[in-house]
């Protein structure tokens, strides 16, 4: 996983919910506030052993994606956030996923407190649902319409300006 040259002491091991182990460079892991917090806590205790961090909510295929993102962003960590190459990469990165993967990735980013990835996912989802009809949005988010016809009419009436 690790890409840049640094001593072996600066690596952690992350365990996915399906018990696969990932060796992660500290700089890469620091992209996730959750992992960074674990590392900081261990370092405060003065542990020299390899740190193992279990992530009970993230499967290994999703963890691979999160780490791919973290690795790329760790490479650009010293640049400012407006790097065009990185933005382009971000866009290409998300474009290839289906909704189910995007769903899991968003939740993993939230759980691992990788704020920039979470923002990226939210923006991507917002962009893709912007001009959709109510029916289409219901389908994408797997929403059951639990309103009575009367309630539905009331809401439409109340927000008449918004419904074209």
């Amino acid at each position: 996983m690790a890409s840049s040259s640094s001593s072996s002491l600066s690596r952690v091991v992350v365990k996915s919910s399906d018990n696969n182990l990932f060796v992660v460079n500290k700089k890469v892991a620091s992209q996730s506030q959750l992992l960074k917090q674990c590392i900081d806590n261990m370092e405060e205790k003065g542990t020299n052993d390899v740190i193992l961090i279990p992530l009970s909510n993230v499967t290994s295929n999703i963890l691979t994606l999160v780490l791919e993102y973290c690795e790329k962003h760790a490479d650009f960590a010293d640049d400012d956030n407006n790097n065009q190459e990185l933005k382009q990469w971000d866009h290409e990165f998300l474009k290839k996923f289906d909704y189910a993967t995007l769903n899991s990735l968003t939740m993993a980013a939230d759980y691992m407190v990788t704020k920039s990835l979470l923002n990226l996912c939210c923006q991507f989802i917002a962009d893709s649902i912007k001009d959709l009809t109510v029916q289409q949005i219901r389908q994408i988010f797997d929403i059951k319409n639990d309103f009575t016809p009367q309630e539905e009419a009331d809401i439409k009436n109340e927000n008449a300006w918004a419904f074209r």
Binding site: A126, I129, K130, D131, V134, I137, R138, F141, I143, K144, N145, D146, F147, E152, I155, K156, N159, W161, A162, F163
Partner: peptide, 13 residues
């Protein structure tokens, strides 16, 4: 998303 689009989601469920 746009305020109007966001308000329209109140009809979803």
């Amino acid at each position: 998303i746009d305020m109007n689009d966001a308000t329209r989601t109140s009809i979803l469920s």
